[in-house]
Amino acid sequence: MGFRSDGSVLAVESCRAVLAEAPSPFQDSGFVCVGDRIETDVSEGFLRGHGTYVIDGVLYASVCGLKERVNKLISVRPLKQRYAAEIGDVVVGRVTEVAGKRWRVDLKSRQDAALMLSAVNLPGGIQRRRTMEDELNMRLVFEEGDLISAEVQSLHADGQINLQTRSSKYGRLVGGQLVEVPATLIKRQKFHFHHLEDLGVDMIVGCNGGVWVGPHDAHKSADTQDGGHGREEAVLVMPTMPSFTPQQRGKAARVANAVRVLAILYLPVHSASIQDTCQAAMQLDLGAADMLKLPFIQHLAEQEVQRRQQDEMQAD
C-alpha cells in the first residue's frame, strides 16, 4: 500500500485556483482587505460604517470586501458573512424551539429569528383571535426540527428578526431535501419559489442560504394556485409525506447537486445558474452523483473562466 506524496493542493482547491486566475467581475470596484486604508474626502468629512475603523482620523477596512458609499457613510460589505436579513427576504429555516406565543427559527444568521403565533395562518381565517388553546396547540403547526419557508417581516435595532408565514406558499416543508450554501452566494431576486418544469422539481432559494429542493408535488401546488390566500383548512392536520419514484428523486438530486457544485466553486446561486449547471451535466450525459466529482467541477470552472473572458472582451 502506498499513498503517494504529491505535495500539491487537493483536487477541489485546484479548481478554485483555475477560477482565481480568471478575470474578476469586480475589477474596477473598490475591493479592500483587512487593514487597507480607505480614501476619504477630507473636506466633506465621512461617517464610519460597518466593516471599518478609524485611527487618527484615517479610515481603515476591518474586513475583506467591497467598499460601499452612501453619501458620507462609508462601509465595507464582507465577501463572506453570516446571513444579514433584509425585510421581504424569503428564507428557509429550521424551527429550534417552541416558546410561548413564538417559534424560534434558526436561519444561520447571527441570532435566531422569531416567528410569532400571530404571524402564521391558522384555520378559521386570518382575522381570528389567537386563543390560549392555539398557544397550546403550537406544535401542531410547527414542531422542533421542522423546516419552514417564511418571509422576513421586520428587523429590530438589536438584530432581532421577525418572520411571517401569512400565505400558504410559506410554511412547513415536506418531501424534499435542504442544501445549505453560504448566504453570500444567494442573489436576491423577484422570485425565490421555482418550479423547474422540465425536471419536475420544486425549489425554494432562501436568501439565508437554505435551498430547498424536492420533487414537484402536484397536490400541493393546486393549493397555492390562487396566490395562497384562498385556502383555509378547518382544522390543523399533520401533512402526509408524498411518495416519490426513483426518477423524480433522481431529478431532485440533480438539482440539489447543481447547488452543491456551485457552492464548492463559490459561484452565485440562483435559478438561472442552477438550471445552467443541470444543463451542462445533462449535455455531458452525467448522472446526479457524477456532478460532485472532479471532472465536472473542473468543467464548470473552465466554463466560468471562458464566460468571464468573453465578458471582458465585450467590455473592451
Partner: peptide, 24 residues
Amino acid sequence: MISRYERLYTAEGAKQGLRADGRN
C-alpha cells in the same frame, strides 16, 4: 436537529437505493 419529513425522505431514498445526492 432534523424534521420527521426529512427522516422519511432519507429513509425512502435508502429503500430506493438513491440517496439525496444521487449516490447508491
